[in-house]
Computed example of a mutant assay.
Amino acid sequence: MANVTFGGDPVTLLGEEVKVGDQAPDFTVLNNDLEEKSLKDFAGKKIITAVPSLDTGVCDAETRRFNEEANNLGDVTILTISMDLPFAQKRWCGAAGVENVITLSDHRDASFGQAYGALIKELRLLARSVFVVDENNKVTYVEYVSEVTDHPDYESALKAAKA
Rank of each mutant, 00 (worst) to 15 (best):
Asn137Ala: 11
Ala118Gln: 04
Glu147Asp: 12
Ala95Gln: 13
His151Tyr: 14
Ser82His: 01
Ile120Gly: 06
Val145Lys: 09
Glu143Pro: 14
Ala96Leu: 04
Asp84Pro: 02
Ala157Lys: 08
Glu143Met: 03
Thr103Ser: 10
Asp134Val: 07
Val133Leu: 03
Arg128Trp: 06
Arg128Tyr: 07
Asp150Gln: 11
Ala96Asn: 07
His107Val: 06
Thr103Cys: 12
His107Cys: 05
Tyr154Ala: 08
Val101Met: 02
Val139His: 11
Asp84Gly: 02
Ile120Trp: 05
Asn137Ser: 15
Val98Phe: 08
Gln114Gly: 03
Glu147His: 08
Leu158Gln: 03
Val148Asp: 02
Val130Asp: 09
Tyr141Asn: 03
Asp150Thr: 01
Leu119Val: 00
Pro86Leu: 13
Arg91Lys: 15
Pro152Trp: 03
Ala95Lys: 15
Ser156Met: 04
Tyr144His: 14
Asp106Ile: 00
Val139Arg: 12
Ile102Ser: 09
Ala118Trp: 02
Ser111Glu: 07
Glu135Gln: 09
Pro86Asn: 14
Glu135Trp: 02
Pro86Met: 07
Arg124Leu: 03
Val145Arg: 12
Ala110Tyr: 05
Thr140Trp: 09
Val98Ile: 10
Ala118Cys: 06
Thr103Arg: 02
Ala88Val: 13
Phe131Pro: 04
Leu125Met: 09
Ala115Arg: 10
Ser156Ile: 00
His151Cys: 04
Leu125Val: 12
Tyr116Pro: 08
Ile120Pro: 01
Val142Met: 03
Pro86Trp: 07
Glu143Val: 05
Glu155His: 11
Asn137Ile: 12
Phe131Asn: 02
Glu155Leu: 06
Val98Trp: 06
Tyr116Phe: 15
Val132Asn: 12
Cys93Met: 15
Leu104Pro: 02
Gly97Ala: 02
Ala115Met: 10
Ala115Leu: 13
Arg128His: 09
Arg91Glu: 13
Leu158Phe: 12
Glu143Cys: 11
Ala118Pro: 01
Val130Cys: 05
Leu126Lys: 07
Tyr154Asp: 04
Leu104Ile: 10
Ser111Pro: 11
Leu125Arg: 09
Asn136Thr: 10
Val101Ala: 02
Lys121Leu: 04
Ile102Glu: 15
Tyr144Thr: 09
Ala110Trp: 05
His107Pro: 00
Val148Ala: 14
Val130Pro: 01
His151Ala: 15
